[in-house]
């Protein structure tokens, strides 16, 4: 067992390979960004379904979360890419097949569905974690139901939810690498492409790994700072009372 590999960093600097990596970074950010936004929307819909008083909304959403949280993201990606166009009507399916960016769209939708399940769980737990005391306090101040939510409950829930949501977003960013299985030209795909074209995969993969680590650490520390800040203002009641947005009737 000995180290026999000689690094050749000039390969990555060659413009054709450098372009693979740069496009890869761009696609990784595109996938991560859009799938995170979409998954938060999906999460809000499912969470409000589970929290709604109508029981015909509650059980399908609960059942969906119960099943979908056990299904791997890779499955969703392959499903949306290979199977979904097949179960559509023929004309629509063939349009999707022939569309060049369908892989990208399938990847984004698949990751959103995977992440949305977790996001819905986080949001629901956040709303449930607001103690009934806070709810009743808001009510007894004479706030209407809408005011209760906008002024008191949602800001509190955001504070509870934010750390977990940031964690999920980092996870989703890492999951964007799974899109390479359907040939989306993101960063992990680029490293494999460089490996197969130049046999210099080690350098490319090292660069990609460092990129993922740096982005994850930066995002993690930003979310940590934000969390500390939100928590520090939580305990100064004076700030909360002086907020102009919280116009509590004083009579």
């Amino acid at each position: 067992m000995e180290f026999t590999y000689e690094f050749d960093w000039s390969v990555i600097a060659r413009h054709e390979y450098r372009d693979y990596l740069l496009y890869g970074v761009a696609y990784t950010f595109i996938i991560a960004f859009f799938s995170t936004i979409l998954s938060i929307l999906i999460g809000i819909v499912i969470a409000s379904g589970r929290l709604s008083p109508v029981k015909y909304f509650v059980w399908p959403c609960s059942a969906w979360v119960g099943v979908a949280r056990h299904i791997p993201a890779v499955f969703w990606i392959l499903f949306f890419y290979f199977v979904f166009p097949e179960i559509l009507p023929d004309s629509l399916g063939s349009i999707l097949h022939s569309w060049g960016s369908y892989a990208l769209l399938a990847g984004i939708v698949a990751l959103s569905i995977d992440n949305g399940t977790y996001v819905s769980d986080i949001l629901r737990n956040g709303v449930l974690a607001i103690s009934s005391g806070e709810r009743e306090a808001a009510k007894s101040c004479g706030l209407t139901s809408k005011q209760q939510w906008v002024c008191c409950l949602l800001p509190l829930a955001t504070r509870i939810v934010l750390p977990a949501l940031a964690n999920r977003t980092i996870h989703n960013f890492k999951n964007s690498s799974l899109c390479m299985v359907i040939g989306v030209t993101e960063l992990t795909w680029a490293t494999q492409q460089i490996e197969s074209l130049s046999f210099r995969g080690l350098e490319a993969t090292l660069v990609a790994t460092i990129f993922y680590i740096v982005i994850s650490l930066i995002f993690g520390s930003v979310s940590h700072k934000m969390e500390n800040r939100l928590n520090s203002c939580r305990y100064s009641a004076k700030d909360v009372l002086n907020k102009p947005s919280l116009s509590v009737p004083t009579t």
Partner: peptide
């Protein structure tokens, strides 16, 4: 290890 994607 925690910030590297599993596939990588």
């Amino acid at each position: 290890l925690r910030s590297t994607p599993l596939i990588l």
